[in-house]
Design a protein around this nucleic acid. Structure first.
Lengths: 112, 112
DNA sequence: TCAATATTTCCAGTATCGTCGAAGTATGGA
DNA sequence: TCCATACTTCGACGATACTGGAAATATTGA
């Protein structure tokens, strides 16, 4: 991952509506959710949400696919992994006991 | 972690100078680096870097301590863990095989 | 007490971003 | 072909952010 990619991803998440939308997509899993469903859930006008989802997609954090007249957006877990990896790259440089804090991510996220 | 805390943290990382500064602090480990060292490494004026480090500190991503006339800044690994945990919270909702992507974070980061 | 070093705060100019009304595009059904 | 639904793009206003010169603060040593 390049620095500019990481900047785009963090900027995408640094906005309340987009962060909340992304977290909903994370919880929705791989199938994702239609744009309209996200917009209604967050009580945001469709065009505003469309702009936000487009920004999330350009950042690589979500993907989209059309099904009939619905456009489904889904979180990209691979991208999240790469982003976090980029952020903490070489954090312990061969010093395993230094990063206990990091290994607890899954537990903190109630993940897996 | 509250949504506003996460917004502040992502906003702090969504800026090239700050992101690079933070990554240097991550590699520097728990001791951290003096403000001036970071400023010179990134070829950024001291006052500009001071502003950026203050933003990182307010976001909780770094901590600071004074040692003589030097102010050391250090990355907060706990905060990173909480931030990532917040982002992917409930990503697999009892579906362990769904989040293979996440479990590879440590490997991606060459961590531990 | 004075000077040098390290860092922070103040301030203002420029640029970028979030929002949403209005108009445009795409899909499916009648 | 026409209409309704779903979503996106355009455009412009107001708000917020990045930068760095200048001045202020903190620490150490002479």
């Amino acid at each position: 991952m390049e620095t500019t990619d990481a900047i785009d991803a963090f900027a995408a998440l640094a906005q309340p509506t987009r962060l909340e939308a992304f977290r909903r997509l994370v919880r929705a899993g791989p199938e994702g959710l239609p744009a309209g469903t996200v917009a209604r859930a967050l009580e945001t006008p469709a065009n505003t949400m469309s702009t936000h989802l487009a920004i999330l997609e350009r950042s690589g954090l979500v993907t989209s696919r059309r099904e009939g007249r619905l456009v489904y957006y889904a979180a990209s877990f691979d991208r999240v992994r790469d982003l976090v990896g980029f952020l903490i790259e070489d954090c312990c440089a061969g010093n395993p006991d230094m990063c206990d804090a990091i290994t607890g991510i899954a537990a903190t996220a109630r993940c897996c």
